[in-house]
Design a protein around this nucleic acid. Structure first.
Length: 388
DNA sequence: AGTCCACAGGAAGGGCAGGCGA
DNA sequence: TCGCCTGCCCTTCCTGTGGACT
């Protein structure tokens, strides 16, 4: 209690924090503002498609612009409603039905979590929209995840809705991490959704430094963090496609580690420790919430990769069945295991790539990119969770 | 040039749970 | 309570495929 804390305002390093100044995104802010401006004259704006890798400020800029827009319209008495949805939110907006139900609830129209036919949910959503009237902006964050899961028919319906609905200026903002995502779409959806496109390039080292120094000023007490630690953070994040979110996480965790160790200030060493911890935490949490059979498959992969650097689907299948026998559970079929491996790959828990071994068949080659310590800890965690 | 392996991955559908409305 | 709907997990059946081998 007597010691001065390292942090002054830790929230400044979280993703929920909206900084006073957004660095190196003036171009994108202006572009989005110009696109949405027609709403201020009660005219329908274009739909917008926003691309950029994780941690490039897409969501930050979008919320910044829409919040300012809302504040302005409240002052000038212009009807505007902004609906923000993260399509990756499990059990909330990851299917067509749930997304519509969630949007309807934001508009004040209750829709049960399941049970209704989809056309009825659409009908309720339409009527909620028409009741609200005026200007409505729907922001679909991580839209690529949704489309990959449920197809593009939903977007087709949405874009049709933009054109047909009465008395409402409806505009869609789609945000995606995946640059190739547009290729999956139906041509009509593509042209309608991307009337306007805004691209968020990755931050470079210098830009990340500006952002981190700015946030560190707010987050840490004076003299509690080394300049070298911040530049190291920026350098690490710049290597990883300029992900500002990761850089901020690193800084926050480094601060926490320093505080816990009772150190005076945050130095480079703490950043290294933070990087290790970040990897472990991400893996550990992802592994913890996996369904049972996915856990067994992950456990299998970790076991097999303890003394070699790659495994194939067939090896996993055999060992998986062996573990299932040990546990006394009925093993799933190869078809399902193939999907589970693909799911684990999608989540970044393993790296799987399809390769051909000529006359020895086509298969997936699975590797890991974990430190030895993380590997062992996750293996142990799964072993305990599975009761092995 | 043709064969053939060991899967990948699409399609269809079963079965169960959760929920609504009559 | 019953009929119906969606979501989810899974199986079965099937076709497709890259490239080493013959």
């Amino acid at each position: 209690m007597n010691k001065e804390s390292i942090f002054r305002n830790k929230d400044a390093l979280s993703i929920k924090y909206s900084p006073e100044k957004i660095y190196h995104r003036d171009e994108q802010i202006n572009a989005l503002s110009r696109i949405l401006a027609p709403m201020l004259r009660n005219e329908k704006p274009s739909n917008v498609f926003i691309y950029g890798l994780t941690g490039t400020g897409k969501t930050l800029v979008t919320t910044y612009v829409t919040t300012n827009l809302e504040n302005f319209t409240i002052k000038h008495n212009i009807p505007l409603k902004v609906l923000f949805v993260n399509c990756k939110m499990k059990k909330v907006a990851d299917t067509e039905y749930r997304l519509l139900a969630y949007l309807s609830s934001l508009l004040g129209e209750g829709v049960p979590a399941t049970g209704l036919p989809t056309d009825e949910v659409y009908r309720r959503f339409y009527s909620a929209l028409e009741n609200i009237g005026g200007n409505v902006v729907i922001v679909l964050d991580e839209i690529d995840a949704l489309v990959k899961k449920v197809g593009d028919e939903l977007l087709y319906n949405f874009t049709r809705m933009c054109e047909t609905i009465k008395d409402v200026n409806l505009s869609l903002i789609g945000i995606s991490n995946d640059l190739s995502f547009m290729e999956y779409l139906d041509a009509r959806v593509k042209s309608s959704l991307s009337e306007e496109e805004i691209i968020f390039p990755p931050y470079n080292y210098e830009q990340l430094k500006d952002i981190l120094f700015d946030r560190a000023m707010v987050a840490f007490n004076p003299g509690k963090i080394d300049e070298a630690a911040i530049t190291k953070c920026a350098a690490l994040a710049a290597q990883e496609h300029g992900d500002a979110r990761r850089a901020l996480d690193l800084l926050r965790i480094a601060g926490e580690i320093a505080e816990r160790n009772g150190d005076e200030r945050v130095v480079e060493k703490h950043i290294d420790l933070a990087e290790e911890k970040l990897d472990l935490d991400r893996m550990s949490e992802a592994a913890r919430v996996l369904p049972k059979h996915s856990k067994i498959v992950l456990y299998t992969v970790l076991c097999l990769l303890r003394n070699r650097d790659k495994v194939l689907t067939g090896d996993i299948q055999k060992y998986y069945e062996h573990i299932c026998e040990q546990l006394g559970v009925r093993p799933l079929t190869q078809r399902r295991i193939s999907d589970i491996i693909a799911e684990l790959d999608m989540q970044g828990l393993i790296n799987a790539s399809v390769i051909s071994k000529g006359r020895y068949g086509r298969t997936r080659e699975i590797t890991l990119s974990l430190s030895k310590a993380t590997h062992d800890k996750i293996l142990l965690q799964l072993k305990q969770e599975l009761d092995l």
